[in-house]
């Protein structure tokens, strides 16, 4: 399970990435995150909602009222163009970070 500070710094990327699969609602997003990360990336409800709301306020997401397959009403979130652009930016940032951090990891492993 990921440390909470790592979750905080990556959750924007994770949510935006899940929403590239199409519009989704609160719990469904959390579940998808859990599936993709194979249970390694768990979020508290408040953390997830805070991130969603922040992304929406920034214009990366839009929300609309919909209903899931059971017919129950849910607030759906979908990616905006700005959200897609931000996602690409975040992914690029993380690739850079990953390469940089990886050098430290291999160096530590060799010692």
């Amino acid at each position: 399970m990921l440390a909470s500070d790592l979750v905080r710094s990556t959750i924007d990327l994770v949510i935006l990435s899940v929403l590239t699969e199409g519009p989704s609602y609160g719990y469904a997003i959390a579940k998808r995150v859990d599936q993709i990360s194979e249970g390694e990336y768990t979020t508290k409800e408040t953390t997830l909602y805070a991130a969603i709301r922040r992304l929406e306020a920034r214009g990366d997401l839009t929300s609309f009222a919909g209903s899931e397959s059971g017919g129950r009403p849910r607030t759906y979130y979908s990616l905006t163009e700005s959200g897609t652009a931000h996602l690409h930016q975040r992914i690029a940032d993380w690739h850079t970070a990953q390469r940089a951090i990886a050098r430290f990891l291999t160096r530590e492993a060799h010692q």
């Binding site: 609160g26 719990y27 579940k31 409800e45 408040t46 997830l48 909602y49 709301r53 849910r74 607030t75």
Partner: peptide, 16 residues
């Protein structure tokens, strides 16, 4: 709105 959304998320989780 936050209350409604958090309730909904928790309800969904519980149901599942």
């Amino acid at each position: 709105r936050a209350r409604q959304e958090l309730l909904q998320m928790s309800e969904d989780k519980y149901t599942e």
